[in-house]
Design a binder for these strands. Structure first.
Lengths: 198, 198
DNA sequence: ACAGCGATGTTAGAGGCATTAACATCGGCG
DNA sequence: CGCCGATGTTAATGCCTCTAACATCGCTGT
């Protein structure tokens, strides 16, 4: 067994390798250009090998979705806390959310596409913990004018909507300076709303 | 041409029939459970027949998307104008938008999935004309505290986000009385925002 | 040490789908 | 009234998912 390359029969870490390969293929060619077969080829194994790790194509996509949520969560946590100003932080987290969708649209779509997934196993909200914490602090500071759970859903929905429409309806939501545009869209939701009181 | 059974070779109105069949299949089994072959069978023609009317599978889906936008547009126009109160109307239109997504999630998803579609041919925004008109009247009445186009994008994004997350993350966005929940979520965006001024 | 077993890969093959090529039918126009 | 373009059909290719049967390998207990 001198310079034997890992035995070359059993891969060793195929599961993670498959998920990595799938993510690369998906980011390159979109979800449609993805197939178990192509993923297997890229990982250097036979087309039947993935079935030792995933029940079917959908299960592999679910694993990819988990990765997507994980990365989204990281980005939210990494948003810059400006001076401990939680309103500013909330906006930064929203922008990070949209930025993730724009940079990796296919991954973003898969993460939030729950079709064929066990509704109980959705880890989505868990990834948004950083979001919830910011709102939580704002509520304890008495700065929310609506209940916490409503604020959470409203903020999430708005940011999610901007993200989705940006990657699907680029003509309306993407411009030269998209970041500024997004900032202008999201800010009024936080402070002031759309309609005057009268 | 008395009671001729359409000659039975040439279908006669295959294009529309295919779109109808596709919509039924999609609403029944989701976009994944849809195939040109199954659609052809349902329409009673050979699997190659659709190619006389659509360049490929994607083109048929695009036609389905058009139908989706058309129906969404109708629903927005049909939203009840309560006393000519445009703020209330805006809310009703938003709820109608979400209701459409919940009732026909697959059709909604296809309509807003622009992958493989010519970006120039997106008729989405056109279907939202009713939405824009309401905001337009509000602006002329001096009741918008942000620019019209920003208000349009913010409202659209929020409503779209609620719709998307309702059909994808039902655990967070669906409850016994979902309609009331949605009303509570969308109202603060219009009047007041999330954060207090101080 | 080593036998055997369970995990992980492989090859072979069944069935489904998208797409194209070559042929058939029909209705309308010159 | 015959021809032609539009619309359907059959046949065939190639890719994909998934399953079954077989192969290999490392670990485990003795």
């Amino acid at each position: 067994m001198a310079a034997m390359a890992k035995s070359s029969y059993h891969h060793g870490a195929l599961e993670a390798t498959l998920i990595d390969a799938a993510i690369v293929l998906i980011e390159e060619h979109g979800v449609d250009g993805f197939s178990l077969a192509a993923t297997s080829r890229r990982a250097g194994v036979s087309v039947a090998a993935p079935y030792r790790h995933f029940a079917n194509r959908r299960e592999l996509l679910n694993a990819v979705a988990q990765r997507g949520f994980a990365e989204l969560g990281e980005r939210l946590r990494a948003a810059p806390a400006d001076d401990g100003d939680d309103v500013a932080l909330l906006l930064e987290q929203g922008l990070a959310y949209v930025r993730f969708a724009v940079e990796k649209p296919a991954l973003f779509r898969i993460a939030f596409d729950s079709r064929g997934r066990d509704p109980q196993s959705t880890v989505g909200p868990a990834a948004l913990a950083a979001f919830g914490e910011t709102l939580d602090r704002l509520e304890r500071a008495g700065r929310l004018r609506i209940p916490l759970d409503t604020a959470m859903r409203l903020c999430w929905a708005t940011v999610h909507g901007v993200a989705m429409l940006t990657i699907n309806q680029s003509r309306t939501f993407a411009e030269e300076d998209s970041e500024t545009l997004r900032r202008h869209i999201l800010s009024p939701m936080l402070t002031g709303g759309v309609i005057t009181a009268d």
